[in-house]
Amino acid sequence: MFRRLITVFFLFFGVASTCFAAKNNNCLQIKGSDTMVNLVQSWAEKYMEINPQDFLAVTGGGSGTGLSSLISGSCDIAMSSRFITSKEIDLARKKSIEPFEIKAALDGLAVVVNPKNPVSKLTIDQLAGIFTGKIKNWKELGGPDASIVLLSREVNSGTHVYFKEHILRRGNPASTEEFAPAALMLSSSQAIADEVSQNTSAIGYYGMGYISSKQKAVAVAKDDKSVYETPTIDNVIKGLYPISRPLLIYTNGEPKGLVKKFIDYALSKEGQGIVVQTDFVPIK
């Protein structure tokens, strides 16, 4: 993981300069969702092996960061783990940029606790109660008498936005539920994974690619009458796991040229194979 990040940074700083300076045609800037960085980086590495004349630079920063770069014209492809908002589309059109959406993969959002925590299944209602601060103690969920430490991503994260809209607000646009102000805002999925692995009363959420043996993914059910499902690839493909979302790619207008070549590769059988290798779920 860490080595991969270093490679990303190295690649970015090493060649991004030439990329900006020359603005030549076989150079692509890809930016956005931290959830998708590893996946898109793997695509880019394999793609560049096949097409050594092209160069792709992949950086994270969060879905919002990617989309705002696409709008300001500082990247060619934005990775996003949430849908673009109508506000963002308006802003883009003002700058004569036409965001074009492509579904590239699926992701299950895992809710994780420390392996020592006895709580191992929760309903969406309970999750909403926990993250809005209505449920404050693990005792209320059948766990030990300890106050719950909420871990959330920063507001620039697509995962944050998705979780708020689909869990806290249950997909209801009129709802005004918010994360409890006491929720700790951490700047990366890895930071949440680290904190959960050393704090027995913490609960956090992130893309299922980040699950390791140091965290325990909670089984989630739509309501208390449904079956509790764990975030596995099978369950996400079958649509059984209730917290899954599309991973999206946004381009300026319909993809053409190099952008199209790269996206075609990502959606090809080989590209979707890489999706499985990086613990996400392919679209076909």
């Binding site: 969060g62 919002g64 705002s68 620039n156 805002m185 700047s187």
Partner: peptide, 20 residues
């Protein structure tokens, strides 16, 4: 836990769309 003025700017400036 607290959130400071500086950390707020640093954490959110990347995401904020220019002009919003």
């Amino acid at each position: 836990p607290v959130r400071t003025l500086t950390a707020t700017i640093a954490a959110e400036m990347g995401e904020a769309v220019v002009g919003s």
